[in-house]
Write a protein that binds this DNA or RNA. Structure first.
Lengths: 121, 121
DNA sequence: TTGACATATGCCTATATGGGAATGTATTGT
DNA sequence: ACAATACATTCCCATATAGGCATATGTCAA
């Protein structure tokens, strides 16, 4: 068998980096497809296809307004991922991973892996 | 191009349901491969291959003891996923995801729509 | 060394993918 | 009606699976 479909669940859908970028971009407010194309610098068909996947798993919602399709992130659909990963929180608090990791942690202390949701460009 | 490799990052690695099960099983304590085989009822080669993927992205650590390979989940590697999904928490708190929810919200608090759907040219 | 055991890797195949290019569809303006 | 605009869909293709099966590697015991 092959890999599970990208549309099988939110886990598979967000595995694609571009789709994560789209979700970040659409988190604050709804946007027409054209805006996403400009922002991510992808071909329009690619964006439409990514949106199709996100839509199929409920990660985005869409609304038509004239010729435009306004998409927005449906944060609720991301919640299961947050919940699942959160189950491991108690372990990363009490676990001493490895000597090597501790050393790395000290070195790159500022690398907090924070994702920023830029409003406009 | 095809899909990104399962070993490209934790997002892709955990997209596979079986690998998530493995991570859950190995969260509390280390286990030899044989235990995972029995637990998940998969063929041993499949388990080994899944473990290889998880190992490549740092989601599990391994230790040899005689003929056995003891694997355990490295929760730290799951943290980035938790952090990323957590960025959307403020949205699922303020967003009304469905008509049903909106109706309930109105009844309970008489709360107005919090998200502004701004238009842009 | 030989054999049993535990695990890893290689090979094969059906399947789904993401990007590019072309085309289809819906809506608006004239 | 017709052209333009905004998206969506289809087709093609190189690539990476995941599972099944066979085989290789590594370790221990006799």
């Amino acid at each position: 068998m092959a890999r599970a479909a990208t549309t099988s669940d939110a886990f598979n859908a967000v595995a694609e980096p571009r789709r994560r970028e789209i979700l970040e971009f659409l988190a604050n407010e709804e946007r027409p497809v054209g805006d996403i194309v400009l922002r991510l610098r992808l071909e329009q068909p690619s964006v439409s296809k990514h949106l199709r996947v996100l839509r199929d798993v409920g990660l985005v919602r869409v609304r038509r307004e004239g010729r435009n399709m306004f998409y927005r992130t449906n944060a609720e659909a991301i919640r299961p991922l947050h919940d699942w990963t959160g189950e491991f929180a108690r372990f990363w608090r009490h676990q001493l991973s490895s000597i090597k990791e501790r050393a790395e942690a000290k070195v790159k202390h500022g690398q907090a892996e924070a994702i920023s949701f830029k409003e406009e460009s």
